[in-house]
Amino acid sequence: MSASRVVRYALVPVQLLLLILFNVLLTLVSFMPHWMEEDLRKAILPFLPVGSKSDVTFYGVVDHRYFWPRMMTMFEITLREIMMTAEEGCKAPNTRLLRLSDGSECRILDLAKPARPLFMSGLEKFRQLTECFSEVADFVTIYINEAHPTDGWAIKGTVEIAKHKSLDERVSAAKKMLELQSVGSAVLIDPLSDESRKAYNATLERLYIIMDGVIVYKGAQGPYGYKMSEVEAWLKKYKGE
């Protein structure tokens, strides 16, 4: 067991306690008078990640009706961070996936080419990168489980998709995502076993770069750790700009 994994195990009790306190705080916010809630929203707005700066997202996140779904999502993310097998500098887990285009089975590393980085992304925000660096890197989007399903930690105003109960439902959801916004890369589907999501702890979203079968960049947990600027800096350095 690596030293970093031992440290992560040791910090679990502290992380879980902080998660409980944070979730309770979010719930208390939803019971504030509207004018106080609005002042708080304006105060934290500059610190929200790109794509989460809307009233809909803010009020959806603090909604007290989703206390337990929100708590369970946070718990799972924390525990998966310990159990995940994807580590920077180590061999990339070669998880099983399905191609959205034809439903055929493949592995993540099937898309990687020798001496050429493979950039693994969440669902959006990287079309410009694909245009700027397509000559030196390959890009792929992996569609995993729904982050905010209607029958889970739902957020009003987002695309209404329930938890995937079958592979067909997940494929349909991925196609719906593409109808709303083209991602500019190959799209792969994580099977219902969630093999890739678990190995790479990609809930809610995450960025990776794989080079010759080794993880050379491992982004932090999204949405706050979803930093395209870091990926762009890595690609520019690799390209020699």
Rank of each mutant, 00 (worst) to 15 (best):
R5L: 05
V6H: 13
V7D: 07
V12E: 10
V14H: 15
L18K: 13
I20Y: 12
L21A: 15
N23S: 13
T27D: 07
V29F: 13
F31S: 11
D39Q: 14
L40C: 12
A43E: 10
I44A: 06
P46C: 02
G51N: 01
K53N: 07
F67Y: 07
I77W: 01
I82K: 11
I82L: 14
G89L: 02
C90L: 09
R99E: 14
S101A: 12
D102A: 02
S104M: 08
C106K: 04
L109T: 13
D110L: 04
L111S: 09
P114C: 01
R116S: 06
P117V: 11
K125L: 06
E131N: 10
F133D: 09
S134K: 09
V136D: 02
A137Q: 02
V140D: 10
Y143R: 09
E146D: 11
D151S: 03
K156G: 05
K163Y: 03
H164W: 03
D168C: 15
S172A: 15
S172R: 15
M177A: 15
L178Q: 14
E179D: 15
Q181M: 05
S182Y: 07
S185F: 11
L188T: 03
I189Q: 07
I189D: 03
D190R: 11
S196I: 12
A199T: 08
A202K: 05
T203P: 00
T203M: 14
Y208K: 04
D212F: 04
D212I: 00
K218M: 13
L235M: 08
